[in-house]
Each structure stands twice: as C-alpha cells, then as structure tokens.
Amino acid sequence: MTAQATVALPARADVRVAAGQAKQRLTSRWASFAAVVLGVLWTVPTFGLALSSIRPELQIKTTGWWTYFTHPEFTLDNYRAALSSDSGTGLGHAFLNSFVITIPSVLIPLALATLAAYAFAWVDFRGRDLLFVVVFALQIVPIQVTLLPLLKIYNATGLTNTYWTVWLSHSCFALPLAIFLLHNFMKEIPRELIEAARMDGAGHVTIIFRVLLPLLTPALAAFGIFQFLWVWNDLLVALTFTSTPDLAPLTVNLANLSGTRGTAWHLLAAGAFIAIIVPVAVFLSLQRFFVRGLLAGGLKG
C-alpha cells in the first residue's frame, strides 16, 4: 500500500499547468524517491505495531515484527488478554469509559458554544466586543494552570469519582476555541439572510434553527470531530480527574501499562492498537471534515 501509493507520484497534473509545473518540480525522479522514503518512514511505526499485536507473546518478546514475513504466526490471544479484566489491564472497561467520557464532552461544549457564538455574532448588547475579546484570549490559557484548583473544587462539591469531573473540565477547555470558530463561521453568513428572517417576524430561536443550523452543519461537524479526537486522545485531564480505575479511559490504562508493565510487550501492542483504532477509523471516514476544521482553526486562530 505504501509503496503503491507513492511510487506512482510522477505528475499527471492538469493539462493547463502540466507542461510548466511538471518540469518545475524539484525534478520528478528524486522527488518521487524522497516522497516514498518519507511515506514509508511515517507508516512503518504504526504498521509494525499492528503486525506485532497479532504475533504470539513469546515471538514478540524474542524477535522483531519483521520476522513475521519469514515465520508468520497468527494469534488473537493478545487482544483477548488485553481486553479481559483478569490480566489486570481491563482495557475492555477502559474502552467503554472512553466512549462514556467522550460523547458528552463533545455534545455539551458544542451546544453551549453555538448559543454563545450566536449571541456574539448576531445579537446586539452592551459589552459584547469586550466579552468576546476575553473569551478569545482565554484560548491561550494552558490547561495545566487550572488543574489543581479545579480538582479542589470537585472535591469540595462531591463530584470526585464521577464522570462529571471530566465532562465539565473538557467542556470548559473546549469553549473558547469552539466559540471563536463557530463565531467566524456565523459571521460569514450574509446579513441579508438574517435580516429577511427578522422581517418575517422570526425571533432569535427561530433564526438559529431555521436559518443558521442548516448552514452551520459542516462547521459543527468539523469541530465535533476535532473535539472527539481531542478528548479521546487526552491523557492529562483524565489522569488528573479519574482517580479510580473504574472511571479511567484507554489513554490512562495504556500509560499505566507502559509504566508499570513495560515488558508486557504483547499487552502493550494489542492495547495500543485498541486505543488508536477508533480515532483512526473516525479520521479515515471523516477526513474531509477533519481537514476543513483544521484549516479553519489553524489559519484563523
């Protein structure tokens, strides 16, 4: 797949530009070669992990994954061991926890940010610009400066050992960027469209549901995917707030496994693959939204 994908690089560009640009490229043979090398370098680590995860424990611990090509031996035992709770890894539970943590942590900030972004974009009120600048500036606050005081707040309110700690924390941290991005998208919607709806007697709520939401779907999807990957892949917030193993998501379990049982290579390989399979699937199926969100965030932020 790697080789195929990149070997065929010599250009077949648009006829318009082909003649000029094909020659302009850093000349095709070396360029293709460099592209193939980079493509292979970037793919091999993940590929090696995937292959390792299906090799028997003893094989993993004594030979490298490339031995598979000369001595193929296949097993699903690593996955069975990693997912079961007897092995002490309990990644099956963690898998569920990751979903339970992630889904509300995406929906809550998304809805709140839509409301706030609408207020900033299309409602007139005093102090709007100042408040918006404050929210915008909060984007640069690193999560680290908030963790310990937040933990104490959760302790004081009795929320410790519930998912609320992670749900609320992720919502707080996501809001500034979400509001900023959605505000930018909302501002691009032509004023006439909103004015026309107002002329027809539509209130704010009607305008949001009838006029804005249909147009905002791509933006909401882009941010939703972004936040999904962010929360699913987060270690810091989960490590700080999910103090009991019962609540811990995949990243926490995998990090512990790597720290305490660094020699359990078979569990590490299967565990890491379990942890990355969902975001990779999300990424592959929704790549277009993801890239669009990235460009909006990267270029306007």
């Binding site: 987060d234 790597s258 390989a269 890491a272 990355i276 975001p279 990424f283």
Partner: peptide
C-alpha cells in the same frame, strides 16, 4: 513533493494519519 501528483490524497493520508493517534499511543 506530492502537490498535483496522481496519488496526492493517499500519500497525504499516510503522513497525516499519526495526527489522529494519541500521544500515549504514539509513545507505545
């Protein structure tokens, strides 16, 4: 290197894929 190449989107996906993996997963 891959701009306007025939396999551009597939070639880009290879480099881009690690972005979707967690830092912990990448560490392992």
């Amino acid at each position: 290197l891959v701009d306007k190449a025939r396999w551009e989107s597939a070639a880009k996906a290879l480099i881009f894929l690690p972005m979707s993996i967690s830092f912990v997963g990448a560490g392992v």
